[in-house]
Amino acid sequence: MDEILKIEHLNKKFDDLTVLEDISLEVKKGEVVVVVGPSGCGKSTFLRCINGLETIQDGKILLDGETVNPPLGNIKNYREKIGMVFQSYDLFPHKTIIENLMLAPLKVQKRNKVEVRKEAEELLEKVGLSSKKDNYPRQLSGGQKQRVAIVRALIMHPEVLLFDEVTAALDPEMVREVLDVIMELARQNRTMLIVTHEMAFAKAVADRVIFMDGGVIVEDTDPKSFFENPATERAKKFLSTFEYNE
């Protein structure tokens, strides 16, 4: 009923290599879905398919009941509604922080400059980076850059947010500050798909956990059952790699 994102029998291949096989998933409005799985299981590719950065060979991705991928008409209209934050700090290096935030709302959404600036400043305030607004990305730490990248996605007022291992490239002491921002978004009932290797965070933030392995969804369950009582051997094996017992 109130599902916002619907993926039907998605198949994705790189040449002859099948990366995603028959993936079906429905995400409800306000739901936080965490996608976990071993490296190379296709979870990043899966996110990239959702906002059309990857072409798909079969299946359908629908946002609000309208097909996003395979692209019909103008994909950019959908991309506006799907915010994405990447693993590598992907801010525009030639623009200041505030310019990074304002570029897309002004050029893509043709919004009013005064209003956009006001919102950008408010959002920066919320993530504790007001003082950095006139700095360039190179002057920020990795954690600060990722927080800005999250704000840059938020300012577009997306209906769905995609996080692709946003803390994977960070120094350990900076992971927390980024996860806190995402946690806060979860509290605001934002619809999010989060790919992460931070299991403790996954457990805390998720309404639902998707476990992927070898390009298929192996488990789709609530976080408590997944982390405490995984149903499949593959999931058990995966989770055991995060334990360190002498």
Binding site: L53, R79, G83, V108
Partner: peptide, 16 residues
């Protein structure tokens, strides 16, 4: 490439 991808994911056209 990530610059292209992040710009596209913000809804920019190829021209923008």
């Amino acid at each position: 490439v990530i610059q292209t991808e992040s710009a596209l994911s913000l809804g920019m056209t190829r021209r923008q």
